[in-house]
């Protein structure tokens, strides 16, 4: 059978490539920011899939259910999860600043299409 990791690695790589294609070829600036968001999501899935083990449990000790060492043997890797926690919050910060820049661009030039603004030629 195909393993869960293989499916999710492939999905995350396809998401990153889709987002990259969208960021390269879309003229509307808001569409570019949406594509960057899709790249963020793909990378986060990739990072967490690295730490997945077959039939893994959440990395939280539960007091009532069995000995702690038995629980520890089946836990998924907590280190990529800690890193992705940071990455999600920072990704939101980047999106908010990018959208504010686009709002200011609209106020000055009345357009969000890249082809109509003089400085960006694409």
């Amino acid at each position: 059978m195909i393993s869960v990791s293989a499916v999710l690695y492939t999905t995350s790589i396809i998401l990153v490539l889709l987002g990259l294609y969208g960021a390269l070829t879309r003229k509307n600036l808001i569409r570019t920011v949406i594509s960057l968001d899709v790249i963020d999501l793909g990378v986060n899935i990739f990072l967490i899939t690295i730490g997945y083990i077959k039939d893994g449990r959440a990395p939280i000790y539960v007091i009532g259910s069995g000995s702690l060492s038995v629980q520890a043997a089946r836990m998924a890797d907590p280190l990529p999860q800690a890193l992705v926690l940071t990455a999600i919050v920072i990704g939101f910060g980047v999106t908010a600043v990018a959208l504010t820049l686009i709002m200011r661009l609209y106020e000055k030039r009345k357009t969000v299409e890249v082809s109509e603004t003089r400085g960006l030629k694409w």
Binding site: G51, G56, I60, V112
Partner: peptide, 29 residues
């Protein structure tokens, strides 16, 4: 993928706050 911490954070930030900020940006442009 057995990551409930990250799931809560992604649901709160990705689907609530990000969508709200996008809707505001759409409205202003």
């Amino acid at each position: 993928l057995a990551a409930p911490d990250v799931a809560i954070t992604e649901a709160a930030i990705g689907s609530a706050l990000t969508t709200l900020v996008y809707v505001l940006a759409l409205r202003r442009t």
